[in-house]
């Protein structure tokens, strides 16, 4: 009944009215994106997992407050997710990075032809650089590049103006440029140059 073609408005209305099937359909439609966002911000699987569950629980609980004329469901859900990521980070005081976690993911691609190795190298290098950014700059650059959000949407998710979102992306971009340019020997082929397709 709740197939992938069902329009969002209907789904949201039915979910707000207590339909578990509609909630599940919404969940399944957005859970991967929410997880990837949380993972990108927190760089830790357990934290991202917890944030995703809390975010959906909160979203379903407050769905009656969602106004589709003010934002898309995606932007609304990302706002909730981002806020929980920030709480999680605050509680931990220091951003902890599970290196084994990243290594797992990098190694998880099965057989590794050369191209795959190079691609993993680019990812690893970029993520190492991202970890050096302040949380605010990292959030901005992640939203910009992982889901091609507009600056207006980013502002909504980050709780700032579109102009501020723009400036954070610029600052992040420049900082990453400096970080990566300062370690040219560490760069695998592809960073700054010919990125993998």
């Amino acid at each position: 009944m709740y197939n992938s073609m069902m329009d969002m408005q209907t789904l949201i209305e039915e979910a707000a009215n207590g339909s578990e099937a509609a909630c599940e359909a919404l969940y399944r439609r957005f859970v991967k994106r929410a997880y990837r966002l949380a993972y990108g911000v927190l760089l830790n699987h357990e934290d991202a997992e917890e944030v995703v569950q809390d975010s959906f629980a909160y979203a379903f609980r407050t769905l009656y407050r969602f106004n589709s004329e003010k934002s898309s469901f995606k932007t609304w859900l990302y706002t909730i997710t981002m806020s929980r990521c920030r709480n999680k980070r605050r509680r931990k005081l220091l951003p902890t990075v599970a290196l084994a976690d990243v290594a797992d993911w990098l190694a998880g691609g099965g057989p590794s032809p050369e191209r795959e190795v190079a691609a993993a190298g680019v990812r690893e290098t970029v993520f190492a650089a991202l970890r050096q950014l302040s949380p605010k700059l990292r959030e901005a650059v992640i939203l910009r590049y992982f889901d091609e959000m507009t600056y207006r949407e980013m502002g909504a998710v980050l709780g700032c103006s579109p102009k501020t979102a723009e400036s954070r992306v610029r600052l992040a971009h420049n900082a990453l440029y400096e970080i990566l340019a300062a370690q040219p020997d560490a760069l695998p082929d592809g960073v700054f140059g010919h990125a993998p397709d």
Binding site: A119, R123, V126, H173, L176, G190, A195
Partner: peptide, 13 residues
């Protein structure tokens, strides 16, 4: 190039 690398790395979260 940096933009492409970012899009690639973050696109493959």
């Amino acid at each position: 190039g940096l933009s492409r690398d970012l899009a690639f790395a973050l696109g493959s979260l």
